[in-house]
Design a protein around this nucleic acid. Structure first.
Lengths: 134, 134
DNA sequence: TTTAGTAATAATAATAATTACTATTTATAG
DNA sequence: CTATAAATAGTAATTATTATTATTACTAAA
């Protein structure tokens, strides 16, 4: 594992993620980074996202569609809107006891868990109500 | 939505999934189907997997790596092995109350949820123990 | 401050997973 | 049977991601 060397691009990518709550995709990061670094390459974005995830400063979220990235390192669950595919953080604190429960009938070692809730986000719900009234 | 028409390929894909517990990828389905249908195309496999998922006869599981497909329509959680990436079913019954808890601090509508546990499967654990003893 | 070493970069090519297109085949209703 | 339309095989295209490589930019030590 080679020594980590500072780079403005990586710093900026991490900062960008910390200031957003919507779990951007690699491409969303790329588009935004180009404002500050017009010559940044998509490979640089991908490499730094992987690197940051590896050292535990961000989390990669696999969904249908492209991966998303989250700088919120408070353990938390996610919500995915079936309409607009938005990925939101849930307030519900992690239920660590689930892991012990799951371990009871399971042969391997459980180290962690995630949960994802699905439904319609408030934004899409409003929109549907509005459309029905027309 | 066009009327669904019977096809031996689709029937066979569904049967194959029902007889397996390891949540095959589209490519695994394809390789197996070619034994029975040497000229089946990968597109046919993908189309039928999507179709079966749409009508609720199977479930698509997004992971790191390729999507996986599950014909077990009993709601259940999954376990993913950090070593070999195997996807296993958990015995733990779905904790439906989580959805109500999550809904308390949440603006949208919650319809369902999934949970995934991560760790080392028993098979990989044994292998590591064996290697340490050498 | 140079300078040597090496990680990071931009640009590009390559790969992997999935979807789209099209001419032909097949299921099924009449 | 036959007409219709869905499903197929074969193939091309697209999307998301990773690999390659020559060049640039950190960083530590002279």
């Amino acid at each position: 594992m080679p020594a980590l060397k500072y780079s403005r691009q990586r710093e900026s990518i991490k900062l960008f993620l910390m200031n957003r709550k919507d779990h951007p995709t690699a491409d969303m990061v790329y588009v935004n980074m180009r404002e500050k670094f017009p010559h940044i390459s998509l490979g640089t974005v991908y490499r730094n996202l992987s690197l940051l995830a590896e050292i535990g400063e961000i989390t990669k979220i696999s969904t249908e569609g492209p991966d998303r990235f989250d700088a919120n390192q408070n353990p938390h669950y996610h919500f995915i809107c079936r309409r607009c595919q938005a990925v939101l953080d849930m307030a519900l604190p992690l239920v660590k006891s689930l892991e012990a429960e799951a371990a009871r009938d399971f042969d391997g070692t459980i180290q962690s868990h995630t949960a994802t809730f699905y439904g319609i986000c408030s934004h899409c719900m409003e929109k549907e109500t509005r459309e029905q009234n027309n």
